[in-house]
Design a protein around this nucleic acid. Structure first.
Lengths: 152, 152
DNA sequence: AAACCTATGTCAGCATGCTGACATGCAGCA
DNA sequence: TGCTGCATGTCAGCATGCTGACATAGGTTT
C-alpha cells in the first residue's frame, strides 16, 4: 500500500472513470435542453430547497460561490429563476425557481433520471443501496480530516 | 423513477460528492510536490505504461488530447518526461519518464496512496472489492450506449 | 459602544479544459 | 496509382471554474 499500484485495481481510478462517464452521459442528456451539468444541478437543488442563497447553493453543488454567481446569472437571464434586488436580511439573496424554471427542471430531471437508471440497471436494489452508502462513507472519510492548517 | 427525486438518496449525487472530495484531498496531498491532479495522473499512467502517445494518455486520464498537450509540455519543461523530436513511426510521439520523473512519481504515488487509504479505511476488503467492481460496472453501462447519433 | 469574527456578494485576473479546425502519416481499397 | 478513412499532433478561440481581494451585514465578545 505504499504506492498506488496497478491503476486498473485502484478504486480512486475507478471512481474517476465512473464520475467522468456519468458527467459525459449527463451532458449528452441535457444538451437538447440547452443546460450544462452545473446549471441542471443548481436547478435540481433549488427545486428541492427553494430560497437558498448563492453561497449555500454553491456548497451543495461542489463549486465556489464565485462560480455559482455566473451560473445563476445565466439562469436568471433565461427567466428560469428569480432573485430579489435587495437582501431581505443580511447579504444573502434567496433564490427561487420561476414557473418556467420548474417546467424545464421537470424535463431535465427526467432525462437525468434516465441516465442514472441506465448506469444502475445491472445492479440489484441491495447493491445500489450499498453503493450509495459506501460512496457516502468515502466522502465523509475524506472530509473529516481536512486539516484546518492553522499555523501554531 | 420518472424524476431524480431526493438528492440525498441519489447515487449520482453521492458519486459526484465522493469524486469531488477525492479530488480535493488529492490536490492537498500533491500541492507540496507542486503537481496538479492531471499532472500526477499522467505521470502515474506513464509510469505503468511507458511509451504511450499523448492521445493514448489522454484517453486513459479522461481528458482531450488537446488538454494533454499542455500537461505534457509542462512536465517536459520540468524535466520529468521526455518526448522525441520526431515521430519514429506515424505521428505518435512515445513519451517516457526521466529518472527525475520516476523519482517524483514515487513520492506523489505515496501521497495519493495515503489519500486512497484514508478514503477506504472504514470499508472491509470485501466491501472495497465490491465497490471497485460496482464502479466499473457503472462506467461500463454508461459507456456502452453512447449513441453514435448518426441520423437515419 | 467598540472590536472582532463570520458569511455573503462582487470584482478582477488567471488556469484549466473544451470545441473547432487543419495538416500529416499510415493502412485499406477501388 | 489514387482515394478514402482514421489516428495523431497542433493552433486558435472560448467557456468554465478557480484564487485573491474587497466591502457589507449581522452576530459575538470585550
Amino acid at each position: 500500500m505504499q504506492q498506488v499500484g496497478d491503476l486498473d485495481a485502484s478504486i480512486g481510478y475507478a471512481m474517476k472513470e465512473a464520475a467522468s462517464a456519468l458527467r459525459s452521459a449527463m451532458e449528452d442528456a441535457l444538451r437538447p435542453l440547452d443546460l450544462s451539468v452545473s446549471q441542471y444541478s443548481s436547478l435540481e437543488v433549488l427545486g428541492q430547497q427553494p430560497g437558498l442563497s448563492a453561497a449555500q447553493l454553491a456548497r451543495r453543488t461542489f463549486v465556489t460561490r464565485q462560480s455559482m454567481q455566473g451560473v445563476l446569472t445565466g439562469l436568471a437571464a433565461r427567466g428560469l429563476l428569480s432573485r430579489p434586488d435587495a437582501a431581505p436580511q443580511g447579504r444573502a439573496l434567496p433564490t427561487e425557481l420561476t414557473p418556467a424554471g420548474r417546467d424545464l427542471l421537470r424535463q431535465a430531471s427526467r432525462a437525468v433520471a434516465g441516465v442514472e437508471h441506465r448506469m444502475l440497471e445491472h445492479l440489484s436494489a441491495e447493491d445500489q443501496h450499498r453503493l450509495h452508502s459506501d460512496l457516502a462513507r468515502c466522502a465523509e472519510a475524506l472530509r473529516s480530516r481536512r486539516a484546518p492548517s492553522r499555523p501554531v
